[in-house]
């Protein structure tokens, strides 16, 4: 197993007084795909949003414990969340392209961080859209509104938008749950295509998806990390009874 690039150490998260994560410790190996599975309300989405501090957006949330990115605690006061989120990108459940053209969507992060070189921008657009496996569908329509594409295409444009800023880690929060199976398969293909360059963490409801694309799987239940192992191992012989029950569809 490759070395962990981002590690959570005993992370507790509270919504006001209510504890939603009960001490999660989990490391994400570099350039591999880690799937987070578990029933609704198990805390997997809540957890993934702590990794780039998107959970800060809710003022009621408090997080304790440490999350280390290359050894530095991202919850230390000197962390610049803008820099952090450039290194740890995120794709959401609902495709959320900006209501601008495909080209503008993909270049937005770059241009706002000061890159003006047209040739470089063009190159990053092509590269990112290709990596996200949506280049063929968009190359002749780069000036069209991203919202005029299908949901699956929009989601892959969103992935390209994240890839364009070249993060080290990409978090995906149920990226295919709003998509049909064909579009989901395309998103999965693009994740597999980029996994040798990025570390990927993906929250999913879909256990087949986790088994198809991930190297490791973490099983969450009621705010606890129940089991974390190689995907092959977990799906063939889970260690815990709860994991086995969930994988066999006995609950959740």
């Amino acid at each position: 197993m490759a070395k962990d690039i981002i590690t959570a150490e005993n992370v507790h998260l509270y919504y006001g007084q209510k504890e939603a994560l009960h001490g999660i410790s989990l490391g994400f190996p570099e350039k591999e795909i880690t799937a987070l599975i578990g029933p609704s309300g198990s805390g997997k989405s809540t957890f993934i949003r702590t990794l780039n501090r998107m959970s800060d957006l809710n003022p009621e949330v408090t997080v304790t414990g440490a999350i280390r990115l290359d050894g530095e605690d991202i919850y230390s006061p000197k962390t610049d969340t803008v820099e952090l989120r450039k290194r740890v990108g995120m794709v959401f459940q609902q495709p959320n392209p900006f209501p601008f053209s495909v080209y503008d969507n993909v270049t937005y992060g770059l241009r706002l961080s000061g890159i003006k070189d047209k040739a470089l921008l063009d190159q990053r657009v092509e590269e990112s859209l290709k990596q996200a496996a949506v280049w063929d569908e968009t190359k002749d329509h780069l000036k069209e509104n991203a919202l005029s594409f299908s949901g699956g295409q929009q989601q892959r444009i969103c992935i390209a938008r994240v890839l364009a800023v070249q993060p080290e880690i990409i978090l995906l929060d149920e990226p295919t749950s709003a998509l049909d199976p064909v579009s989901s398969a395309k998103v999965e293909d693009s994740l597999l295509a980029i996994k040798d360059q990025f570390t990927i963490a993906v929250v999913t409801h879909n256990m087949q998806q986790a088994s198809r694309i991930s190297d490791q799987t973490a099983f969450f239940l009621d705010g606890n990390l129940v089991e974390f192992s190689k995907t092959v191992d977990m799906f063939t012989h889970p260690e815990k009874q709860e994991t086995s029950d969930y994988l066999n569809g006995k609950f959740g």
């Binding site: 780039n52 959320n96 961080s113 969103c158 938008r161």
Partner: peptide, 11 residues
């Protein structure tokens, strides 16, 4: 979702 998209891109 638009705000989250912006922030998550490192804006």
């Amino acid at each position: 979702l638009q705000r989250e998209a912006g922030l998550s891109l490192g804006l």
